Simulated scan of single mutants.
Amino acid sequence: MDERINIAIDGPAGAGKSTVARSVAEALGYIYIDTGAMYRAVTWSAREAGLDIENDEAVAAHARKLDIRLAPGPEGQIVLLGGEDVTDRIRSRDVNLHVSRVAAIDGVRVRLVEMQRGLAAAKGVVMDGRDIGSHVLPDAELKVYLTASVQERARRRHREAGDSLGITLEVMEREIEERDRKDMGRAVSPLIQADDAVLLDSTGIPADEVVSRIREMALEKLAEAKQDAL
């Protein structure tokens, strides 16, 4: 393809953003960027360092010193922190419970958004998160707000990691509802659907079908861009 666009996929926890975004990127030959993993890396590192995550200045200063890199791996994306693979460690329940707080810190977001925009400058990326279409990449050619019912999202998360986390499906539902409340209610870049984003509810829809729909929308946007260039 001569033309390339940027694709922003936003939505709440457990909506399947990472799985879908990764597959869309593979289908189009684009680069996949999991911004949530970047916030998880900051959270994990701050907790490991013994920082009080209620101390905005300390956590933001810590984030500015971190070297966070994303690389392709055999099972998806690898998250490197200072050159060390922390992909599995940032998916712990402790990180799940504290990442929304860290993501609400303005200094942390400023640092990571700067990195994310730099990655997307050359076009051809699929980026997922909470505020990609509304804040990080407001000029993305295709924006999708991917969601699903709380019950569906809890089932997915529990099926993926519930046993390893040692919690019940009911607890998972409550934690996801609390995560939604924090993400939607934060003062800095809250989780919202961008005005020009396509709403896609994945409840009961297989992931491959969701990927197919987004791929078709991307091809339509590419065709429009080529037509406009004539």
Rank of each mutant, 00 (worst) to 15 (best):
E3K: 01
E3L: 14
R4S: 13
N6C: 13
N6P: 02
A8K: 03
G11I: 00
A13H: 03
A15K: 12
G16P: 11
K17S: 08
V20D: 02
S23K: 15
V24S: 11
E26C: 00
A27T: 11
A27V: 06
L28Q: 04
I33A: 07
D34R: 04
Y39L: 09
A41P: 06
V42K: 04
R47Q: 13
L51A: 04
I53V: 15
D56W: 00
A58D: 04
V59P: 00
A61G: 07
H62V: 08
A63V: 01
R64T: 11
K65N: 08
K65F: 00
K65I: 04
L66P: 01
L66S: 06
L70G: 05
L70H: 03
P72G: 08
P72E: 05
P74C: 12
Q77K: 06
I78N: 13
G83T: 09
E84K: 15
E84Q: 14
D85I: 11
T87Q: 01
D88Q: 15
S92M: 04
S92F: 03
R93P: 02
R93E: 11
V95E: 10
A103Y: 00
A104K: 00
I105T: 03
D106Q: 13
G107V: 07
V108L: 05
R109V: 05
R109H: 06
V113H: 13
V113P: 12
Q116V: 03
G118A: 09
A120F: 02
M127A: 03
M127P: 06
M127K: 01
M127T: 08
R130A: 08
G133F: 08
S134L: 08
H135W: 04
P138R: 06
E141M: 09
K143G: 11
V144K: 12
Q151H: 15
A154S: 11
R156T: 05
R156M: 10
R157F: 06
H158A: 13
R159W: 04
E160K: 09
A161G: 12
G162T: 08
S164E: 14
L165A: 12
G166T: 02
G166W: 05
T168S: 15
T168R: 11
E170A: 15
M172V: 15
E175W: 11
E175K: 00
I176Y: 01
D180V: 09
D180H: 08
D180W: 08
R181L: 12
R181A: 15
K182D: 07
D183L: 07
D183Y: 10
M184T: 15
A187S: 14
P190F: 03
L191D: 01
L191V: 07
I192H: 06
D195P: 02
D196A: 12
A197D: 06
L199D: 02
L200C: 02
I205F: 05
I205K: 01
A207Y: 13
A207F: 15
V211M: 07
S212K: 15
S212W: 04
I214Q: 06
I214E: 01
R215F: 07
E216V: 11
M217Y: 00
L219S: 02
E220F: 09
E220Q: 12
K221Y: 02
A223E: 15
E224C: 01
A225E: 14
K226I: 13
K226V: 14
K226D: 04
D228F: 13
